[in-house]
Amino acid sequence: MKGDTPGAIAANRYYDPDLGLPAVKILPGEHYATGEDRVLVSVLGACIGVCLLDPECAVGGMNHFLLPDTGTRVREAHDAAGHGKLAMDQLLDALYKLGARHERLEARVFGAANLPNALLSPDAALRVVEFVHSYLDSEGIPLITEDVLGEYPRKIYFFPASGKVLLKKLKSLHNETLLQRELEYILYLKRAEVLGPYDLFQE
């Protein structure tokens, strides 16, 4: 079934006159899937963005998340992995509802920059990359391309109709919007750690 994910979490939609396409902006903690000819846009700092695509039926989607910065204790590491699994499972479920088949899925992965942030441990970016690799391996989803880690945030344009990705590394930020959004998201995750078991952004 073509269309957009019913009740998709990402709600920031607009028309991009330069690309000549409807666009959906994916913010921290959000995901979106579509079978329509539109572009999914995200700006990734410390967060990671996973683009999944079924090229046969041209259904694809993107998420934008970060593992809770729990340190290395076993219980906390398990909770962090649970949050990452939820973010990935939500995107998969959205794709299945639009007709994607698991055995045809392929992945493109971006982000997880090593940005200086007092609220994140030094290995936070590496941990989320390792989690995504492990998740894709366990699900048997091939990783087609990735651009992760490093010192610069990235702006991603993902075109599910073709599988094309445009990437721009942001060597200078013109405003603090990206940093503010990720700071608010990190604080949300840390508050959720204190409160205990949770389903982040579950509808």
Rank of each mutant, 00 (worst) to 15 (best):
M1Q: 08
T5R: 08
P6K: 09
A8P: 01
A10F: 10
N12E: 11
R13I: 12
Y14I: 04
A23K: 06
V24Y: 01
L27T: 09
G29I: 14
H31L: 10
Y32D: 00
E36I: 03
C51M: 12
E56P: 00
G60D: 11
H64E: 07
F65D: 01
L66C: 02
L67P: 02
P68K: 07
P68F: 13
D69M: 04
G71D: 03
D79M: 15
H83I: 13
G84V: 05
K85E: 14
K85N: 09
L86K: 09
K97N: 10
K97A: 14
G99Y: 02
A100Y: 03
E106I: 15
P116L: 08
N117Q: 14
L119P: 01
A125L: 01
E130W: 10
F131K: 06
L136D: 07
D137Q: 10
I141M: 09
L143N: 10
T145E: 15
D147L: 15
G150E: 04
G150S: 10
K155W: 14
I156K: 07
Y157W: 15
V165S: 04
V165Y: 06
L166R: 14
S172M: 15
N175A: 09
L178V: 12
L179Y: 07
E184I: 09
E184G: 01
Y185Q: 01
I186Y: 01
Y188G: 00
K190D: 08
V194F: 05
L195V: 00
P197C: 04
Y198C: 13
L200N: 02
F201G: 03
